Amino acid sequence: MRLIMIDDDAEGGDALAEALELHGHQVDRKHRGSDLLLAHHGYHAVLLGLDLPDMDGLQVLRKLREVSSVPVLILGEQADERSIVLGLHSGADDYIVKPARVAELAARLEAVTRRVGVATVARGETVVSDDVRVDLAARRVEVAGELVPLTRLEFELLRVLVERPGIAVSREQLMDCVWGDSLLAVSRKLYVHMAALRAKLDRPELITNIRGYGYRWGPDPYETAEAGKLLKAV
């Protein structure tokens, strides 16, 4: 299992990382919360300390949850109920009190990653909406039977949206998935490429701009459900 450990306890963190590696895990050590926000891709789980040099660990966790569902286990100093509940409510999957018992931590890691694996939905290779056909495997897009050439970034934006039909995707999620940076200071890149994508597809009803939040592929599922109820009533 590939893990990333964000903790400012150099001696204790190094010892824990070495012990986990003896259990067959690969552990990358980082010390700053910003390191996690910029480098959480490709890991099976996160071990997160709360006392970090650049920001509070719970703040890091809440920011991470805006863009990722990767399992997070908090490595906390406090064993009181309030601290544990606060960590879980902030988005953690589990809370381990330091010093962590390695065998228990390894078992908890297996448990949370197993739950995530069961909940994962397989992604389809082709998405069809009205007369728009998106072949994710071939990276090919057709509108009304005509091929629409997209740049790499335009296709990546489209892929993120069509894999989540009817779900609002935040600007931070899009920037994280496409550029690998949810903290991208100049989000104008997103607006420019999204505007180009919408113009090329020429189907404004398929990509909804949710003001102040992000975008959605396809109609609002709640509006569709309400319309269905009205038709049945008639």
Rank of each mutant, 00 (worst) to 15 (best):
S170N: 02
A79W: 11
A100G: 06
G214M: 10
L184P: 09
L73M: 13
S187V: 12
W179E: 04
L206F: 02
R152P: 01
V97T: 14
Y213R: 12
R133F: 02
R101I: 14
G42Y: 08
E142W: 03
L153W: 03
D51V: 12
V102L: 11
H40F: 14
L88T: 11
D131S: 15
A107M: 13
A10V: 07
I84A: 12
L50C: 06
D181L: 01
H41G: 14
G87I: 09
E223F: 11
P221R: 06
Y95C: 03
V169K: 05
W179I: 04
V60C: 10
S182H: 01
L48V: 13
Y215K: 00
S34P: 11
L47V: 13
A195S: 14
I74V: 15
F155C: 13
D56L: 07
C177L: 08
L231V: 01
T126L: 07
S34E: 09
R114Q: 14
V97D: 10
L231D: 00
L206A: 03
P204T: 08
D8W: 03
R65D: 04
Q26N: 05
E223N: 02
D202R: 06
E81L: 12
S182N: 01
L158A: 12
R82L: 10
P165K: 07
Y43S: 04
A168Q: 13
D176G: 01
Q173I: 08
R133T: 15
D202I: 04
L50D: 05
P204V: 10
H25R: 10
V178D: 10
G212R: 09
W217G: 00
L73H: 12
S90Q: 09
G24C: 09
S187W: 15
E142Y: 04
A137S: 14
K200A: 08
V121I: 07
V72M: 05
I6E: 02
V132P: 00
R164Q: 14
S170F: 06
S83H: 11
D94N: 13
I207D: 04
V127Y: 15
V141T: 06
